[in-house]
């Protein structure tokens, strides 16, 4: 499939009891670029990700999926959207190799294609020598890279990453972002949710989420200008009153 996929949400809302995790969020993910979803903990980033991945259904509004600007049902595009959950989501008692084998079967990847991708992924993540190590024994950075590898194995058109660098050391974080830049070249639409504000500046487009509401969307520099701040931390440090 060579067509371009893009996603939109039209005023979706999702509440858990009295908490409104998402409040009337309309978001557009332009295809082929690296999007950042920033906001403090509890802003609703994970809920939004889950709604985009079809793991949760919004109570109001809907998530729309398009190929070449033509609306398609989620079930048709599901195979091209990959998701990496925020929580520990790998099997501690399976090795790197066994994870890749498992996802190969889950995504129904042909064997020759699999061998090629596996070799490539192990190379860029520099995990080749740890192939037989159990996921439970990997370092934080390696673990996240394995997670990314598993979601990249199916050559997705859209990649949803929920706080992929959370709890990872600075060097591994930089490596991780370099991996993402490489992906950008291959025209994959990426959405990275993060609570690290410095990472926002690495994205081509940033969506600011706070208390379940989408406060702003735009290019990073443009947004900084708009808020009249020098970095993204300040947007939230100044308090929510300043979030336009």
């Amino acid at each position: 499939m060579d067509s371009i996929i893009h996603l939109e949400t039209s005023s979706i809302s999702k509440a858990f009891g009295k908490t409104r995790a998402l409040d009337n969020v309309s978001l557009k993910l332009k295809p082929g670029i690296l999007h950042g979803l920033i906001g403090p903990s509890g802003a609703g980033k994970t809920t939004l990700m889950r709604c985009l991945m079809g793991l949760m259904s919004p109570q109001e509004g809907e998530v729309k999926y398009f190929t070449d600007n033509e609306r398609r049902p989620f079930s048709k595009l599901r195979d091209y959207i990959a998701y990496m959950p925020q929580t520990q989501s790998l099997y501690a008692d399976l090795s790197i190799k066994e994870h890749l084998e498992f996802f190969k079967e889950m995504y129904q990847i042909p064997s020759d294609e699999y061998e090629k991708r596996k070799k490539n992924l192990l190379e860029v993540t520099r995990l080749a020598q740890f192939e037989d190590r159990l996921a439970g024994q990997l370092s934080g950075g390696m673990y996240k890279k394995l997670g990314l590898m598993c979601s990249l194995l199916r050559n997705p058109k859209v990649l949803l990453l929920d706080e992929p660098t959370n709890g990872v050391d600075p060097i591994s974080r930089r490596e991780f972002w370099e991996l993402l830049y490489d992906l950008k070249k291959s025209k994959v639409t990426i959405l990275v949710a993060t609570a690290y504000m410095d990472e926002a500046e690495r994205c081509s487009f940033v969506h600011v989420l706070e208390s379940g509401q989408l406060k702003n969307s735009g290019e990073p520099l443009h947004l900084l200008e708009k808020y009249q701040v020098s970095n993204f931390d300040e947007i939230f440090l100044k308090g929510s009153n300043n979030v336009i």
């Binding site: 793991l55 195979d79 990959a82 959950p85 989501s89 889950m106 129904q108």
Partner: peptide, 13 residues
């Protein structure tokens, strides 16, 4: 509990 359910459910299975 391990969080792996989320991964499985997001796969086309």
């Amino acid at each position: 509990e391990a969080g792996t359910m989320e991964t499985i459910l997001s796969a086309p299975i």
